[in-house]
């Protein structure tokens, strides 16, 4: 029972991080109709920023998180302006390939500046938050922080898109970009804002990554990025609640696969399970759990 609960709790913790990353994928897809495959690497930049601030200054952790958010927001907006904006209106394959190129660029810049080795860091405040439920069951401080952050952001985002003028404009652009322009909505500005929000969340995810794995390196964003993409597809790409449900579900599935496969010394296969899910979702229900059928306009 304790094992089951521990696995579930770890899954929710990991899933909260996936959910936050999946939000970036899903929002950018909803507004700009593109898959930003460099999104995972923005998490890595957020992680490295967090690490650098914590390791080399005496600033408190929240300053490191703010720094990561600031760096990632600027980076996301600049990438959109420089790499994606000139490609508006061309085939989506071109944009996808560009995004993969940006992803490699970020990784290689990180390899050059940060080095090839993963570097370790543990937040002491997270360990202080560890919560002993009983003899065998501890809820990690990082779990508590991950879940709280994810819930707060989810509520904030839903309030934003449903109750603010800018948020409603975002939904209008997401549904019909041409009609939104006829309302006087500046679509380019809306896309920039979406990249800013998605990248800011990736910055926070970078901090969560260090909190969860206690290390960071140039390739840190790849796996969480791809898994969060799977989560976004699973939940229904374009849907904000879908990103949360997909992220949490995927985190739980991954942890349970790991713990079951570990009994057969096969825990390395757990990642493969995630991609089997991606394939199954695409085969059985391509719109995901909460996704809408997208009508192709003629």
């Amino acid at each position: 029972m304790n094992d089951f609960l521990a696995t579930l709790i770890n899954g929710i913790s990991l899933g909260s991080m996936y959910a936050l990353i999946a939000l970036g994928y899903t929002m950018v897809y909803g507004i700009a109709k593109m898959l930003n495959f460099a999104h995972g690497d923005i998490i890595m930049v957020g992680g490295i920023t967090t690490f650098t601030v914590m390791q080399y200054t005496n600033m408190p952790p929240w300053v490191a998180v703010l720094a990561a958010v600031a760096v990632c927001t600027v980076l996301g907006v600049v990438i959109e302006k420089v790499a994606y904006k000139p490609l508006r209106g061309v085939s989506s394959l071109t944009v996808l390939i560009t995004a993969i190129g940006v992803s490699y660029l970020l990784q290689n810049v990180a390899l050059l500046t940060f080095g090839t080795e993963n570097k370790s860091y543990s937040f002491s405040f997270l360990t202080a938050l560890n919560w002993q439920i009983n003899e065998h069951l501890i809820i990690q401080g990082s779990t508590i922080v991950n879940v709280v952050i994810m819930l707060v952001i989810m509520v904030a985002l839903l309030l934003f898109v449903h109750f603010t003028k800018q948020g409603k404009a975002m939904r209008a652009v997401s549904e019909d970009n041409g009609a939104a322009q006829l309302m006087g909505i500046n679509v380019n500005a809306t896309i920039s804002l979406t990249f800013a929000i998605g990248s800011a969340l990736a910055g926070i995810a970078g901090f969560m990554y260090i909190g969860t794995y206690s290390q960071i390196g140039a390739y840190a964003g790849t796996m969480p990025g791809i898994k969060a993409f799977t989560a976004a597809v699973f939940g229904g790409i374009g849907s904000i609640p879908g990103a949360m449900i997909g992220g949490i579900a995927l985190g739980i599935i991954e942890q349970f696969s790991k713990s079951i496969l570990a009994q057969f010394q096969l825990s390395a296969l757990a990642d493969a399970i995630v991609f089997v899910i991606l394939i199954l979702v695409l085969l059985i229900k391509p719109t995901g759990l909460l996704g809408r059928q997208i009508k192709e306009k003629v």
């Binding site: 409603k168 404009a169 939904r171 549904e175 019909d176 009609a179 939104a180 309302m183 006087g184």
Partner: peptide
């Protein structure tokens, strides 16, 4: 027409007054 089908009637009208 191209109304925003996911938004309410009132929100659609408010989008019209976006500027």
């Amino acid at each position: 027409r191209r109304v925003f089908s996911q938004l309410t009637v009132l929100d659609n009208l408010k989008m019209g007054a976006y500027i």
